[in-house]
Structure formats: C-alpha cells, structure tokens
Design a protein around this nucleic acid. Sequence first.
DNA 1: ATATCTTATCATACCGTTAAAGCAGTCGGT
DNA 2: ACCGACTGCTTTAACGGTATGATAAGATAT
Lengths: 334, 334
Amino acid sequence: MASIHDVAKEAGVSVATVSKVINNYPDVSDKTRKKVSQTIKQLKYHPNVAARGLVKGRSWTVGVFVTTSFTNPFVSELLEGIKTALQNSGYDLVLLSTRFDDPNYSFVEHCLSRNVDGVVGFGVARNDPHLEELLESDIATMFVDADIRGRRAGYITTENKAGIMQAVEHLVELGHSRISFISGELDKAVGVLRHEGFMEGMKAHNLSVNPDYVRISDYSMEGGTRAMNDLLALNERPTAVVCTSDMMAFGAINVIHRSGLSVPEDISVIGFDNTYYSEIFSPALTTVNQNIPSIGSHAIETLIAMIENSDFAPSVVTEPSNLVVRCTTAKPRK
Amino acid sequence: MASIHDVAKEAGVSVATVSKVINNYPDVSDKTRKKVSQTIKQLKYHPNVAARGLVKGRSWTVGVFVTTSFTNPFVSELLEGIKTALQNSGYDLVLLSTRFDDPNYSFVEHCLSRNVDGVVGFGVARNDPHLEELLESDIATMFVDADIRGRRAGYITTENKAGIMQAVEHLVELGHSRISFISGELDKAVGVLRHEGFMEGMKAHNLSVNPDYVRISDYSMEGGTRAMNDLLALNERPTAVVCTSDMMAFGAINVIHRSGLSVPEDISVIGFDNTYYSEIFSPALTTVNQNIPSIGSHAIETLIAMIENSDFAPSVVTEPSNLVVRCTTAKPRK
DNA sequence: ATATCTTATCATACCGTTAAAGCAGTCGGT
DNA sequence: ACCGACTGCTTTAACGGTATGATAAGATAT
C-alpha cells in the first residue's frame, strides 16, 4: 500500500502538500493540486485510517453495542436504516464485540481504545451498569428507544404512548371492553410509555383495567406465548389483547390457535413495530407501525451531526407511529 | 485517556517495559510486572488500537461487506453467528459502508485503508467486479456460500446439492411426480448447486423435468410470488414446489392461498434455510435446514486462524444440511 | 581480578498522518 | 528601495504504540 511519502516523492512535493491536497486546504496552487491528485490516483493511494486517527484522535467509525440477538427483526431493520445512513458518510460501523464474561470489561474503555467517534445504544436499560460511565464520558451517543440524555447523549424514539392509545381506541370502536395488555419489561422507557399509553387509552374510554389482564413479560415470541397461556387460564378471558411487540403477538396468536380458538373471531390481537413479518404472517397482523429503518437513519444522522459539530446540542427525536389495521382484529363475539 | 507514557511515568519504568508487560514478553521481572499491571488498572489504561495498528500493520478488525438487506433473515442469523464467534476473540466487526454510486470506489482499497485483517464476503457473485481485485490482494477472506478460492481465500457452505435432493426424495416418497423448482439466480455457487441437486434428485427417481416447471427468480419473497404466479398460470400445474429459500416459499404459499388453493392439500411447498420464521409461519414450513449461525461462527473462526497463522491454508468447510418436515408437504390429491 | 554471559531495563527509531511554524518569492504601496 | 502582506510550499514535532539494539548490574567462569 502506497503511503503519503510515496505520493510526495513521485509528485516531487513534500508530504505536507500532499496532505493539504487530500484535506482540501486552500493554500495549494492548482497546478500542484492537479499533479498530486493525479499521482494519488496513479498509485492508488488511500490514506491510512489508523495513522490519521492517531493524530486526529478520531476513527471515522461509529460503534454499536448490540445486546440482543440480530435475529430480532427490530434490530435487523434498525441496522438496515443505519447502513443506509452510513453509506457515503465516510463513517463505518463497528460492532463492538463485548466481553461480558469479563467482570471488569468496560464498554467505555472499549470505545476509547477503539477511538470510536460515537455510539448508538439500543436496548439499554435505565439501570445498565455501563450507562453511567458512558454518560460521563465524552463519547457522542444516540440511544434508540430510551429516554436517556446527557451532556453528549441524545435519543430517538417513536410516539409510543400515542401508538398504544390508537390501538386501544381501535379495539373500543370495534366494541371490545375486556381488553388485555401484554407488556415488555418496564426497565426501559419504551416499556413504561407503552404501559402508560394503555392505561390512559382505557381511561379515555371510561374502561376499567382488570389487573389480571395486564401481564409483564418480555418482548420475544416466548414472552408472548407465556403471557397468553396465563390469560387463557383465567375464568373470564379477554376478547382482545394488545402486545408491545410483533413477536409477542405471534407467540400469543400461536397459543390461541393451539387452544382451539381463532383469531380474530374469538380474540383480537394487536402487535407493535410493524416489522416485515407482520404482513407475511397469517393472519396478517394488525399492529402499531413505527418506521424502524428511518429511526436507524435518523439516529446516525444526528449522531454524525453531534460528532462533527461539537456544540450541536444532543437532540431528542420522536418519530410518528400509526396503527395499521390488518386481519387480526374484529368485532367481539356476542 | 491515559497513554503508555502515563503508565510508564507513574510506574517509574520506561514505555518499553510497559509495552512488554502488555504483550506478555518474558524478560520482565515479576516485581516490575506486578507494579506495571497495577498502574495499568489504576489508570484504567487501554492500548490505543490506532497506534498499535499503525506499527503492526493490523487493526484487529474483520470486515463484512453486506450487499443485501439486513432484513434478509439469512443475513441476520449469519451475523448472529459471527457475533458469537467474535466475542472474546479480541476482534471487532466492521461493516464496510460501500460507496457504490462512486464508479471508482474500490472495496479492496477501503479494506486496505481501514487495515482490516480479514473479510467475510457474503452474496458475492462469480462475476462481481470487485472480486478479482480482492483475490489478488493479501487480505484473508472467507466467502460464505460461494465456491471461490484464492491464495488467501477460502469458503464455507452447506451441502446444497444433498439438501435439495433430500427435498425431492421426500416429495417422491409422498407420491408426487409433477414437481416444480423455483430457483434463485444462477450467478452464485449456491444457485448452481441447488439447481444441480434438483436435476439429479429427479433423475435418481426416474422423473423427467418439465422445463416449464423450472423457474429462475430471486431469493426474495417477491421472487417466490412472481414464480408461483407463472406456475399457476400453466395448464397443468405442479403438485409440489421446491424453493431455494424460505422467503421464496412464503411468497409462493401466499400466492397459492390467494388463488383459492390450499397448502399442502393442493400443492406441497418446501423451502430452504430453515430460518427462524419457517417455524412461526402458518402453516409451518417444511424446509431444508442449514445451521446458519454455525456457518457464521465457523467462517470467523477459520478466518481468524488464517489471519494469525499466515501459512494456514485457506480452507473449505462444508456444513451438513437436512430436511425438516413440517406442515407444508403432504400426499398429492388423487 | 578479569572476562564472559544473563537478565532486566532503557533510549530511540519508526509506523503514516496532520498541523503549526517557518521560509522563500511575488506584489502593491509608499 | 524598502516594507509588509500574501501565496505556496517545506520542515518538523507530535500522536501512542512496538521493536531493536544498547546498557548496566549481577552471576559465573577462567
């Protein structure tokens, strides 16, 4: 690999001049600029990122810290959005492979030694042990779906509350009143907000919430399965269920079918996310749509703005959500 | 961030000694080693990867070049396997964000300027314009699902042919003879091998292949939809269809259902991949299983072996495949 | 007592880049 | 004719590590 010295020698100028050409400094004559550009092309020279990073204290990489599985469709779609925004940005994405079994592994130190310019954090709980350290550091951060702010940290999220309220409203309009809520863990903002959305949505229609109908589980399909099993065991089962993820809804629907009941005739089910599979699944899932790829893209765009413009205030972005009615909701049986 | 100089000063030794401690050189007395380790911990020192990379000409990163969407469940599961193998390896994954709109963008130059120690290539066609350049370079490479070898390049794949042959055999045993094959593009090894598997499987049971029944499409759901539409338009439609991806099978099944026919009663469908959703989909999909996460892990493991041991011959790994019978295959109607 | 070998440590060149400072040469103004 | 400003370029010191050859001190052999 040719270095800047090779280019300088070949072009008959000093390394500094080459550097200036590369970085578009004004004090280079057109003639030399041309000559240098030409030799750069000729030698297929590309600046060494490590060397550049060493002196600039930057790396032109942004880190992600994925705690959940990539199999999670939310993660896939988020990454897709991130990939799109990264294209042509000059930044590359580094997946920080964490060493969780090492008790004194520090995420922040990992970032610092890798010199990442910023990170996007996803699935970060409010009580995450690494969180405080991260917020204290100078690393620009965008959290996805977590209402965590800091001197250098902003977040992006969807209208969680409004989304769930729309879901409840839809069910009420269909004539449901025995409405159940299968929630994800309440340790993250999304969980709390969606829960609030359910409570407020019910209240807005003067419906009381049966405590047995509110199940706290986890966002996976197994989470939905477990919660739905509990609900079916009740004396008076609900006629509709609002889930806080599509995967949970899939799990719930499978349980309902397996117990001989049908969706939506016996029980209506609503999901959350509108991931790619909600349309493919049969019956096609009624769900709260959030534009996940766009969340990913915006997260990166604002992150880069924060990085390149250190007085850019860490921002809070909220993406709209809306209910997509498909085939898993209907009027309750008489 | 503390540097090696800070540690040296604090511990009262030279930087060289600190470096030796970090890199486990033998010629350091136990006493100084202890003292240095202690100050490293105390100052929360972590070597700067850029500086180290600069002198060593390495980066402790492996690159991936994802041309398809992350939404593709194969990619997600592959990444999951990669993530697992990377854990505790000391390597991080960098997603090279490609600049395809730039006509003289070079993937290899991107890798070189980032100093990645190796790359895993997925979805690389035999006629990919970047391929030759990559093979000529000294970058250690593992291709997934492509039979491309080079001085520094090996590959990992599944028993593609055998998998499809099992699928055909299963259908024949059920009594099918009008068997169709919906194939992905034939520009990659997987496409060719699965196609061969179909041809040989049919031949092995003395069945002739109706050319109308062989459709070349793409691996997406839309690909399956398109091909199935064509098949249903035929005078004599097939009683069974073998698809080369799960997504294609989903698309095909949706088309069949929409046209008023049912799966598997009217038409049996088999997929390929056994991705997470094949079990969730209803009816649950009969499909050829390949252990995708394990493919990802093995790709990384052999890649790292190639990197750290430059005379490790680039290897070829084949993972087994097997048919998983679920609910989309049955005897043909009389 | 001197020479030789070991062992532990250090000083320093170097990796490829950027940036600050400096230095010729040209030009317009007095 | 001289001054300062400007232009275009170069020299050189970092950045934070690693590796190499030198060195000092102690042990062993002669």
